Each structure stands twice: as structure tokens, then as C-alpha cells.
Amino acid sequence: MTERTNLVVLDMAGTTVTDDGLVERAFGAAAQALGVAPGTARYAAQLAHVRATMGESKISVFRHLFAGDEDAARRANAEFEAAYGDLVTAGHCEPVPGAREAVERLRAEGRTVVLTTGFARVTQDAILTALGWTDLADLTLCPADAGGRGRPYPDMVLTALLRTRAVDDVRRIAVAGDTSHDMRSGSAAGAGVVAGVLTGAHDEAALRTAGATHVLGSVTDLPDLLARAEAGR
């Protein structure tokens, strides 16, 4: 039997929460607010970068898109977060089927569960409220809670460890997410399980290339994966 995994760090959009194109729609609103019109080469290039960096802290994405203009990056990020929040409030936000039950099972088994995001706290809270998830996990974290860098840095995973004190060894952490940045974050933190899920942005090849130890159809498969690993199967 292997060491028990007592800390589980889960991404939100694309992993436990369906994205349904909301990131791209919110980006469109932010881009237009800063004068980047759909149909232009600049818009297409920026959208391609947004797609490639799913899972990364959104302010970091906008700092790349508006390199050298911190004011523009911050305004774009504010427009993005406002647009995403409006979409969530309008009802365009649903859980990945079975995600709530998976979190409840993990906690019932005595594991600490932390939900993380690349969004700002205000957007994360809007999602949690819309889904009725404000008390679902033991802890929720956004990049600002972990020093501001977000993914692909390991900061949110390590902050989860420090805040919860659920484990004394990073190898007893499981990280699950739908993007390459999630995988890189988990790997950099030294997590024993870094599970990619296929309900979001990136495919199996991208997840494995970025360091996934396992690739699952959905986060709902994670409790069984941990149980099998701990039973030595």
C-alpha cells in the first residue's frame, strides 16, 4: 500500500466547472474594450494566446498581450473579470457532471480538498456562489492568495499545503486540472499525483507532455484512482 494522499488540489473552470466558451467570450469583451476588434490579425493572435495559456493567471495573460503597458493589461483584466462575472450571474455556469459528488466523496474519505483558479477572487466567488459551492471545499485559492503569480508556478499548490497543513510531504498531494499549466504547476510542486482531465482545454498529448502522471476522462474518476493507488493496484 502506498502513502495516503490527504491533500487534493483541484482546478475549477474546465475541471470541476464547465467552461462552455466563457473564457473566450469574456476575452472578446475585454479586447473590444481596449480597441482590439474581432476579425483583425491582432485579435486572432491574442485569442490564440488566450487559448494556449488556459489555466494561467489571467492578469499574467494580459500582461503578455499588452507587453510594456501595465495600465492596459490591468484594464483588460478588469474588463475580462467583469464580463466573465456577468456571464456567470446570467446563469452560464454549471458544474462538470459528478464533480460535486467527487469532492464530497474525497472529503468523506478524510482528504482535504482545495479549489483553485486563475481568475481573480471576485470571479471565483461569483462562480462558487452561482453553483452553491461556497462550503463545498475546505479552502479556495486564487493567484492573489498565493503571492500573485498563479500557474504554471507551484505557488497555489504549496499555499494549499501551508494553509491546510494536511500533509507533511508534497508527494502526498494530488493535483487535477484540464490544462498544461495545471500539470506544470503540480509537477513543480512535487505532487505525487498530477492528473489531467479531458473535460476542458487541452488534450491527452498536451497534458502528458506537460507532466501528467495520469489522464482521466473526468475529475469524477479521481477518487477511484487514489483508492486504487493506495491499495497498491
Rank of each mutant, 00 (worst) to 15 (best):
A201V: 15
L222C: 09
T123K: 01
V167N: 02
E230T: 05
G132R: 12
L128K: 04
D203I: 08
V157W: 00
A108Q: 15
S187N: 11
V113R: 01
V219Y: 00
L161P: 03
R171W: 03
V114M: 03
R172T: 14
H202D: 15
D224N: 08
D224K: 08
E204I: 11
L161E: 14
R208F: 06
R121Q: 12
P143Y: 04
D135R: 14
A160R: 07
R121M: 07
G190P: 07
V194G: 04
T117P: 10
M183Y: 03
E204N: 12
L115F: 10
A205G: 13
P152A: 11
D169L: 03
A188G: 14
A206T: 15
Y153G: 15
R208L: 09
T220K: 01
R228C: 02
V175L: 02
S180H: 11
D182Q: 10
M156Q: 15
T213R: 02
D224F: 03
I173A: 01
G132M: 11
A108N: 13
T213Y: 00
A130F: 08
G148A: 12
V175W: 00
L216T: 10
C142H: 10
V175G: 00
Q124V: 15
H181I: 02
A188E: 11
I127T: 13
T213C: 08
L158G: 06
D135N: 09
A144F: 11
R121S: 09
A231T: 10
A229Y: 03
V157T: 09
P154Y: 08
I173N: 00
T179D: 00
V122E: 15
A146R: 08
G110A: 12
D203T: 12
S218F: 01
I173F: 00
T199A: 07
V167M: 04
A195I: 07
L216K: 01
V122T: 14
L136D: 07
G118E: 02
A144C: 12
A191H: 01
D182T: 06
D182S: 07
R228G: 03
R111K: 13
G190T: 12
T140Q: 02
G192Q: 04
L106G: 09
T179F: 02
R149A: 14
L161N: 05
G132Q: 13
V194I: 14
T220E: 02
R111H: 07
E204T: 12
L106T: 05
V175A: 05
A189I: 11
E109Y: 07
A191Q: 01
T199G: 06
G150L: 08
G186W: 04
T213I: 09
A174Y: 00
G211L: 02
E204S: 12
